[in-house]
């Protein structure tokens, strides 16, 4: 570090009145009083939340916000999940419960018969989304998540697919999927080995 980079800050000298501390207090009180009676500033700053949300700067529209989950559907409207249990293994909060069954479709072996996420236990870390090999589970920017009972907040497969229907316009499923093993219609290439043609 060079000498000229050092900035030596000296505390300003206090006048006798300032040393008594009280004049400064009255100064501060005048400031707060001014704020107390500035209705205009209040109206500019405050948003009455449920009725009025922030617009423009500070508005919540970032696509990677981690809100409530959804289960994606593939192009044919089937649930994209292949019940590999990657997400429930990765989940630090142990809040994903999957029951796998034999898939009725020829292009995959398993599918989730039951898929439940306890949204109250979830810490919204996004690990499940990272873990999923077929991008079936995703977090959406929806954060207005309330319920009157704990049971209500355990989202089952239908509800998660419903969330997908509601959010697919604002946040479409990643396309092409990063890894689809060439199985979901074949337009995608495996990122890990893109030149390998995969057979069904």
């Amino acid at each position: 570090m060079r000498d000229e980079d050092i900035i030596v800050l000296q505390e300003p000298k206090l006048s006798p009145a300032e040393r008594l501390y009280l004049p400064q207090i009255f100064d501060g009180m005048v400031t707060t009083l001014r704020h107390m009676f500035s209705l205009k500033r209040r109206q500019q700053v405050v948003r009455q939340y449920p009725e009025d949300t922030r617009q423009g700067r500070g508005e919540l529209r970032i696509a990677n916000y981690r809100g409530v989950h959804r289960l994606n559907k593939d192009a044919e409207g089937r649930v994209a999940c292949v019940a590999c249990f990657m997400c429930s293994t990765a989940c630090p909060a142990h809040c994903i419960h999957i029951e796998a069954g034999e898939s009725p479709w020829p292009d995959r072996e398993k599918y989730p018969v039951k898929f439940e996420i306890d949204e109250l236990r979830c810490i919204y870390c996004g690990m499940c989304e990272e873990a999923c090999p077929v991008d079936a589970i995703e977090l959406t920017p929806h954060y207005e998540l309330v319920g009157r009972t704990r049971e209500e907040m355990i989202f089952d497969k239908e509800k998660l697919l419903q969330v997908f229907e509601e959010t697919k316009h604002t946040k479409p499923r990643k396309d092409p999927p990063i890894t689809d093993y060439g199985l979901t219609g074949g337009q995608g290439k495996d990122v890990a080995s893109p030149n390998v043609e995969r057979k069904v």
Partner: peptide, 15 residues
């Protein structure tokens, strides 16, 4: 008190 505050080294607020 003002006179004393002006002369004392350390302000009351303990800076």
């Amino acid at each position: 008190v003002l006179w004393w505050a002006a002369r004392s080294k350390q302000p009351m607020t303990g800076r």
